[in-house]
Amino acid sequence: MLTIDKLNFSYGDMQVLWNIDLQVNEGEIVTVVGANGAGKSTTLKNISRLVKQTSGSITFQGEELKGLESHQVVERGLVQVPEGRKIFPEMTVLENLRMGSFIKSARPDRETNVERVFSMFPRLKEREKQLGGTMSGGEQQMLAIGRGLMANPKLLLLDEPSLGLSPLFVKIIFEIIQEINKQGVTILLVEQNVFQSLKIANRAYVLETGRVVLSGSGSELLSNDHVKKAFLGM
């Protein structure tokens, strides 16, 4: 579904991604794990076209994304839930969700999608009229994911959804991700919470200083010595 081939990217003179190869197949949960500064978010930003690669190719459903802008990839069903949630603080929960169905193809499904999000996140239903900015971090993360779903994504990119959340919310968010996947949405998840994300992932990639150092199925990597030592403290 998504194929990244020899992706290189530099911020100015500083190269941060080196020959990244990555593959996401339809229906999978794929996770990219790694430490701070490993290049996880930058990889996602390249996919969602917030930044443009120096070289290499990214194809989504057979189409090369080079030359497309962010708003155009969204129309193709590639939707990113940005890091740090980035909800609209002065809009209500409902307005935030409705903004998610900005693109033409998602507009006819707006009301059904709102219902779908509310059934997935009953908490959001309760807070329908509350301003986004006044909710807790976990609720805002739910809202950000819900808003992403409003655009009818085929592939959902999640950038550190568990960042800064309480353990209870982390658990809920990971359950939700699996639930969304079961409903037919392919997921590319970038996480620092290595243990949780490897547990739910079909396949995983480990990034270190901008390079893919390991890849394999989630359970393989969980039992990998390097992963255990470097990320799980075992």
């Binding site: 917030l50 708003h71 940005p82 603080p89 655009a151």
Partner: peptide, 21 residues
């Protein structure tokens, strides 16, 4: 008005929703 306000409140989020900034 909502598109304008979305841009005001968070350009990156608006962009990630498919709004042509």
């Amino acid at each position: 008005g909502y598109y304008f306000q979305a841009i005001r409140e968070d350009q990156d989020a608006a962009h990630s929703l498919g709004i042509n900034l």
